[in-house]
């Protein structure tokens, strides 16, 4: 017993208590994952549930290679070769997110700033924003199909629509919350109308814009997957929907895991650090969510 205690003290001294605690936390957190995977494997052994309901882990892994089986190679996959099924669907979904972001974010910011600078205009546009954000992105899918037909235009529209209204609304509210005295300060330093936008309103609304971006990704990604299922002809949502109809459950599982991982990584490792950085730099307190 004393030997163990001494050993643990020695380890603590070497590695540092904080680091050790962190490692222990990671270890502890992985226990349920390992447990789930063991259960999953046991199910494969004892077949409590049919493979059609819960496919073996190895089949899910194998689905990657099955979907990519005719793909000539990495370069061909990047060029969206016809036979690279999985990568094509991933890139199709990601491409829409990026395209919608590139178009929707600047547009939302521009309109949000213009509306937010004027109290009367923003007063009228606030209910528009509230209503548009209340009709969730998913509810637009049937109308989008009527307008654009089944295909990439519909799915892109759903993503763009969700992003635009969230960014617009958040920017407008952010601009409205910028203290007037900051604007006056820049004006008395000789700043023009354009200078007040560039130096005060835009940076002042930044934390709110980035929160809007996180919300956009959260809601938009969900809406996009739904849109691909109902009104799309490519993308991860389309893939899992078709696979489910064909009862290829292993492909559905693979798709679901990929959808979650893409969201998790882009939120935790791109948007959260960005949000944390702006909010702290702006002198506000960041609360982890």
């Amino acid at each position: 017993m004393t030997a163990i205690t001494e050993f643990s003290i020695a380890v603590q001294k070497r590695v540092g208590r904080q680091r050790l605690l962190k490692a222990f936390k990671v270890l502890l957190g992985s226990v349920p994952f390992i447990f789930l995977i063991i259960l999953w494997e046991l199910n494969t052994q004892f077949v409590w549930f049919d493979p059609i309901e819960i496919p073996p882990l190895s089949d899910v892994w194998g689905a990657i290679f099955f979907l990519q089986s005719d793909c000539p190679g990495f370069v061909a996959a990047m060029q969206q070769h016809n036979d690279c099924n999985l990568t094509n669907n991933i890139m199709s979904s990601l491409g829409r997110v990026i395209l919608a972001g590139v178009v929707g974010i600047p547009l939302g910011i521009a309109f949000g700033i213009l509306a937010g600078m004027n109290r009367t205009i923003s007063g009228y546009l606030e209910p528009v924003g509230i209503f548009m954000n209340s009709v969730s992105g998913i509810a637009w899918i049937p109308l989008a199909i009527v307008w654009f037909g089944v295909g990439w235009e519909t799915t892109l529209f759903i993503m763009l629509n969700t992003i635009f209204w969230l960014i617009f609304f958040n920017t407008m509210m952010g601009v409205r919350a910028v203290p007037k005295v900051l604007v006056q300060g820049v004006q008395t330093l000789g700043g023009s109308y354009y200078d007040t936008i560039k130096h005060v309103y835009l940076p002042g609304a930044m934390p709110s814009v980035i929160t809007g971006m996180r919300m956009s990704l959260g809601f938009g990604w969900r809406a996009l997957i739904a849109a691909e299922m109902i009104g799309g002809d490519s993308g991860l949502g389309f893939m899992i929907f078709v696979s489910a109809v064909e009862f290829k459950t292993e492909e559905v599982f693979l798709g679901v895991i990929l959808i979650s991982l893409i969201y998790l990584i882009s939120d935790r490792y791109m948007l959260v650090p960005l949000e944390k950085w702006t909010i702290e730099r702006w002198g506000l307190v960041w609360k982890p969510t």
């Binding site: 599982f253 679901v256 959808i259 969201y263």
Partner: peptide, 10 residues
């Protein structure tokens, strides 16, 4: 982060 919509097919 596994949204309800994504697990829908399952």
């Amino acid at each position: 982060s596994v949204s309800g919509i994504a697990i829908f097919p399952v």
